[in-house]
Computed example of a mutant assay.
Amino acid sequence: MKAILLHDSGPGATLSEGAPRRETIVYVPGIDGTGELLLGTSKRLEARFRLLRVRYDPEPPSDERPGGAPLYERLADTIAECLDEAGVPRAVILAESFGGGVALQLALRHPDRVVGLMLVNTFCFYPRRIRIRLGAALVPFTPKKLLQLGRISLAAKLFFRPRKDAEAEELFRQAIPGFARGGYAERMRAIPELDLRDRLGEVTARCELFCSSDDAVVPSTATMQVLADGLPNAQLTTLEGANHIVLPLAEEPWVERLEELFRSAK
């Protein structure tokens, strides 16, 4: 599995030669892996930044690197290749959930490419390891129609509520789910093998951390506190009343937060 460049947009993507380039953000998706779950926030970010979105693509079996942490490393290395493809020397990395481990690996393996990190509802070590291993074992045998029905019917309860954003919820229901593209179980299998707790002190980039008080997917108040305690240059903010998916919420000032991260990281 590898990361590929899905979309390159916003001011700076098509500037004339010699013009100053705008700050670049790379969005690293969660386990969904499609790169599409910023939803309406994509447009809000593109109005201010150059935005690169990546997705996770399966590779032929001969090219796979089975196991846990090697998958995170492979994704991090191929994100660096996406930066090369886009001609971007350095960027702020915006990552959520599963993608946070990928972003941390990028900062460890390619520190010169990272201006700063904004990590949302993620982890460097997932404590519910038995649960995630069971899920990885069941996903390949669950009909996709059943997975899609569960995704749609539980979207509000498991991902958004008690915060409400009708537009974001509707766009989420319409989005093609990541399990439809393959590689979902492989990403799930990688999670219980990830453990970067002893390496957090090596991440020198400025890190802005956000956890949701009502996260029903990841125990993010606990996992993000681990990050806040271990990263040497980090600040943790709790989003009260928010669930797992918060980046699409229009009421959250993500543009302003990213602007401040660029300023503080320089």
Rank of each mutant, 00 (worst) to 15 (best):
M1W: 13
A3Y: 07
S9C: 07
S9E: 09
P11L: 08
G12E: 12
L15A: 12
S16L: 00
E17T: 05
E17L: 02
P20C: 00
P29D: 07
G30T: 05
I31S: 05
T34L: 06
G40E: 14
T41F: 09
S42A: 14
R44T: 06
L45A: 09
L45P: 10
R48Q: 05
L52S: 13
L52C: 14
R53W: 05
R55G: 07
Y56L: 10
Y56I: 05
P58F: 01
P58V: 01
P60K: 00
P61L: 15
P61G: 13
S62L: 02
E64K: 15
E73T: 10
E73L: 06
T78K: 07
L83R: 06
L83D: 03
L83T: 07
D84R: 11
A86K: 12
A86Y: 06
P89Q: 15
A95G: 06
E96K: 08
G99H: 03
G99T: 13
V115L: 08
M118G: 07
M118R: 15
F123A: 04
Y126R: 04
I130L: 04
I130Q: 04
I130D: 05
I132G: 09
R133D: 04
G135E: 07
A136W: 06
A137E: 14
L138D: 07
V139W: 11
F141S: 02
T142W: 07
L146H: 12
Q148H: 15
Q148E: 15
L149A: 15
R151Q: 13
I152V: 04
I152Y: 02
L154C: 05
K157V: 15
F159A: 05
F160E: 08
R161A: 09
P162F: 03
R163A: 13
D165F: 05
A166W: 08
E170G: 00
L171I: 10
L171S: 04
F172V: 08
F172G: 01
R173F: 01
Q174E: 13
I176A: 15
P177T: 14
F179C: 02
R181A: 09
R181C: 06
G182K: 01
G182R: 05
Y184M: 01
A185F: 00
A185Q: 00
E186N: 11
E186C: 01
I191Y: 06
P192D: 06
L194R: 03
L194V: 01
D195I: 04
D198V: 15
R199P: 09
G201H: 09
V203G: 01
A205W: 10
L209W: 13
L209A: 03
C211N: 12
S212D: 09
V218R: 00
V218A: 02
A222I: 02
A222W: 03
A222K: 06
M224Y: 10
Q225E: 00
V226M: 13
V226H: 03
L227N: 09
G230F: 10
N233D: 13
A234C: 08
L236R: 08
E240D: 07
E240M: 01
E240Q: 14
A242V: 02
N243V: 04
L247N: 07
P248Q: 15
A250Y: 08
V255N: 03
E256Y: 03
R257M: 12
L258F: 10
L258W: 14
E260A: 15
E260Q: 15
L261N: 14
L261S: 11
R263H: 15
R263C: 13
S264V: 06
